[in-house]
């Protein structure tokens, strides 16, 4: 099975991480005005904006590396589902508040060590974006972890739903640590990081929170992969339909 890539490995690498942040930003934005309290609505809007900002910087840099006339907006709004290379985890739908917070927590626990590693990238632009993103990711992690513990160690119903969220999302977490040839090349060049090296710190963060939340570690299941090669769950296409329709219907529209 062929991986859809641009001609330049660095651009492809940047787009992967840009896509993770773009797709999660859109998922969170979908939820704005639905949060259980006003403060949480603001928090989710802020977190979405941080992810969108990171996505914008990564995709704009990827576009300049490509140098063939596409810009960040073209990458965000004019690529098809098969061209998106985000992790499956971030495209999972907003089933309920527990799923949203557990999804966020599982991803934040990955982003913190990822950005810490990439802040030392040999590519100075990527290192700069990462050094900024890690400060934000730590805020996000503190917030999502608080919710995981509050909900897990909360009422019988919130406990049940949070455990369910972990059980449902667990099979999408392994993908974060599966590297491919591009990851190996980028790590060897000192630009990227070997995703497998992020698993230990991620597990530590996650298992500590699960224990504090009085939850149980989900049983290991078959790991779902495919996002990095453009093979997605059904959820992404619907999300992109909503996200992209304006630029698809009215190309180049500005407001």
């Amino acid at each position: 099975m062929d991986t859809i890539t641009t001609s330049r490995p660095l651009a492809t690498y940047l787009i992967r991480h840009g896509d993770d942040n773009l797709v999660l930003a859109q998922r969170l934005a979908e939820y704005i005005s639905w949060a259980p309290e006003l403060e949480e609505d603001l928090a989710i809007a802020n977190i979405a904006l941080d992810h969108l900002g990171v996505a914008h910087h990564l995709l704009a840099y990827a576009a300049s590396v490509e140098g063939d006339g596409r810009d960040a907006d073209a990458l965000a709004f004019l690529r098809s589902e098969r061209e998106f290379t985000n992790l499956l985890l971030v495209e999972r739908p907003n089933d309920d508040f527990a799923v949203i917070m557990v999804r966020q927590f599982l991803f934040d626990a990955y982003q913190v060590p990822l950005w810490e590693a990439l802040a030392g990238s040999a590519d100075t632009t990527l290192a700069g974006i990462a050094a900024k993103a890690v400060k934000e990711a730590r805020y996000h992690l503190r917030h999502s972890r608080n919710w995981v513990v509050t909900l897990g160690d909360g009422t019988e119903e919130s406990h049940r739903r949070t455990q369910h969220a972990f059980d449902e999302l667990w099979r999408f977490t392994g993908e974060m640590f599966v590297g491919d040839a591009l990851d190996t090349d980028m790590a060897a060049a000192g630009i990227g990081v070997d995703p497998a090296s992020l698993e230990a710190p991620w597990r530590r963060t996650v298992l500590e929170a699960i224990a504090d939340a009085t939850l149980s570690e989900p049983e290991d299941t078959t790991v779902r992969v495919g996002g990095r090669s453009g093979f997605h769950t059904e959820a992404l296409g619907h999300m992109l339909g909503e996200m992209q329709w304006l630029q698809r219907a009215y190309p180049g529209l500005e407001w």
Partner: peptide, 13 residues
């Protein structure tokens, strides 16, 4: 602290 996230990205409530 009421919320770590306020009216803009840089502020808490």
């Amino acid at each position: 602290t009421v919320s770590e996230f306020g009216s803009t990205a840089c502020k808490a409530l």
